[in-house]
Design a protein around this nucleic acid. Structure first.
Lengths: 127, 127
DNA sequence: CTATGATTTAGATGAACATCGAACCAATAG
DNA sequence: CTATTGGTTCGATGTTCATCTAAATCATAG
């Protein structure tokens, strides 16, 4: 970050819950949007976190207890907890303690942002 | 990589050009699929590379010359070249030299894999 | 041959990251 | 209150990464 003094860089038609930006092949991403999306992607770009994400998202009721997640990996509990925190900090999941256990669920809006980003244009700009 | 000797881990219904896996909330990702997708995501999870990707994909004709890309960043040529190589190695873009200049274009199949991964289920599993 | 566009290599540096063990907090069960 | 079990936080460690400078390489055009 060399303190680039760009004046505009409006964050597309973001409404804090919708798709942040146009599909990647529609128009160049602004510097700000790219930074914002990179945070989301960096959180998802790990094999363990990807599996955690899909285990949580595909679990019955849309949520999963940490106790269900830990056993599927050859990692210590602190490491799993760390990965969950990365996902939570990025805004991809949300956690809630209910009694003894902590349950996590996916935040669909965040996943939608990524889905919309990589959605190909239906019309391939001729050729 | 501690040489995990997993025996099965079949790569879903991948056909080397289609969507690798089911959406993230449909079923748990296999260890192999997660690793494969993490490579793709890690390549995309950088502000500079995201912008490169969208600049290439949204450029007229579906391809962009490196000379068009370099000026948009405050980075040296080797650094841009490095980022392009990361994207190319991951299979997200493909480059071709025509005369003096090198042109890059997006590989749609790779982008589609990510799009399909983050596509939400149409039916939100009740609630 | 020379100049331009682009990639590569090598080395260096500072930041970010994945992982672990140990300590710590929260809630339930005796 | 005192275990015990479930999770998180806290350092520490070794690795990966982005970026630069500098130089070398390669391809093409003139």
């Amino acid at each position: 970050m060399t303190a680039t003094p760009l004046p505009l860089a409006q964050s597309s038609q973001d409404a804090q819950g919708g798709a942040c930006c146009a599909p990647i092949a529609r128009q160049p991403l602004s510097e700000g949007d790219a930074a914002e999306l990179a945070v989301l992607l960096k959180a998802a770009a790990d094999p363990v976190r990807l599996r955690l994400l899909s285990m949580i998202g595909s679990h019955a009721g849309g949520e999963a207890c940490v106790c269900d997640l830990t056993d599927a990996f050859d990692l210590t509990a602190p490491t799993i907890s760390h990965h969950l925190k990365v996902l939570r900090t990025a805004g991809l999941i949300d956690g809630e303690r209910r009694g003894t256990w902590v349950y996590y669920r996916i935040i669909p809006e965040a996943v939608n942002k990524l889905g919309a980003l990589f959605t190909p244009l239906s019309e391939p700009v001729s050729a």
